[in-house]
């Protein structure tokens, strides 16, 4: 991650010097998906757009949740020569592209001399000021984790399980035991406790290598949290280990967009 970023930075740095103005065109629904997912944890993020497609990584202000997003160049109608990094306010971007939908092409042009982008879609043309990337919190370096538990399941099923936990508590426990071959999603409140099983039949692919239990804050996941854009029909891959961040992956834009979400565990108070 860190190495890739450094490269991207270097490329971008070089590219912005040489390119005066760079333009990419992407389908409205793809950009909309990107913005929707990012808005679940941050207000602003650094976009890197260009010949490698699009990549964004954003960590929430409390340094607890993170979303990484990549869209392959093939998802773009056209990509420019360089890569440009620009910090953007997501709420505003969301408003500006709100008029476009479905396969409408959205053109983003970078104007380095004014540190702004020009957005064109349908009959609308917007000039939007960028934010200095230095003013946005850098994503932390996350070392590779060998997860104790990995499983792939329908996102709708998983979201339901997590929402169940919310009925009784403000945090959720993921629990897996090697011999059981299933993952239990538990909400433990002060008085009540609710368990939802994700059985081996619902798990399309996965492995429980070691027993693992981990606790996470629900407000990062649901009620506008990271799982908000997800619904039935999307395959979600979840990886976690005891006392380590949970990672969740899914694809969008016909498999050309990839999302990784990460959430640090809750601190045990008892």
């Amino acid at each position: 991650m860190a190495a890739a970023d450094a490269e991207a930075d270097a490329d971008a740095g070089g590219a912005t010097e040489s390119v005066d103005r760079m333009t990419v065109t992407v389908r409205a629904e793809v950009l909309q998906d990107v913005v929707d997912q990012l808005l679940t944890i941050v207000d602003e993020a650094i976009f890197r757009i260009g010949y490698e497609g699009l990549s964004v990584a954003a960590v929430d202000p409390a340094n607890v949740g993170m979303v990484m997003l990549e869209v392959e160049p093939a998802a773009f109608e056209s990509v420019g020569d360089g890569m440009f990094p620009i910090g953007l306010n997501l709420e505003r971007l969301d408003d500006y592209i709100g008029g476009a939908s479905g396969a409408d092409p959205v053109t983003l042009s970078y104007r380095p001399e004014r540190r702004s982008i020009e957005i064109e879609h349908t009959n609308v043309e917007v000039e939007m000021a960028g934010i200095d990337p230095d003013a946005i919190r850098d994503e932390p370096d996350i070392p590779a984790i060998d997860p104790s538990v990995e499983f792939e399941t329908d996102a709708g099923l998983f979201v339901d399980a997590v929402e169940n936990a919310d009925l009784a508590s403000d945090h959720v426990r993921f629990k897996a035991v090697v011999d059981d071959g299933e993952v239990v999603v538990i909400g433990e409140g002060d008085t009540d406790e609710i368990k939802t099983e994700i059985s081996s039949e619902d798990i399309s692919d996965g492995a429980i290598k070691r027993d693992a239990e981990s606790l996470f804050s629900l407000n990062y996941l649901i009620s506008g949290g990271m799982l908000k854009p997800l619904g039935s029909g999307t395959d979600l891959r979840v990886e976690y280990s005891e006392d380590h961040p949970v990672k969740m992956h899914y694809d969008f834009a016909d498999g050309l967009g990839h999302v990784t979400m990460m959430l640090a565990p809750r601190v045990g108070t008892n």
């Binding site: 960590v59 929430d60 202000p61 409390a62 340094n63 607890v64 949740g65 993170m66 932390p140 370096d141 996350i142 070392p143 984790i145 981990s214 606790l215 996470f216 804050s217 407000n219 990062y220 006392d243 380590h244 961040p245 990460m262 959430l263 640090a264 565990p265 809750r266 601190v267 045990g268 108070t269």
Partner: peptide, 22 residues
């Protein structure tokens, strides 16, 4: 903001094996 920070481990720390219990 503060509440989320205060109740959760940090990403980098917990990924590096810092644990959740602190």
């Amino acid at each position: 903001f503060a509440g989320r920070a205060a109740r959760n481990a940090t990403l980098a720390g917990s990924a590096a094996g810092g644990g959740a219990a602190g």
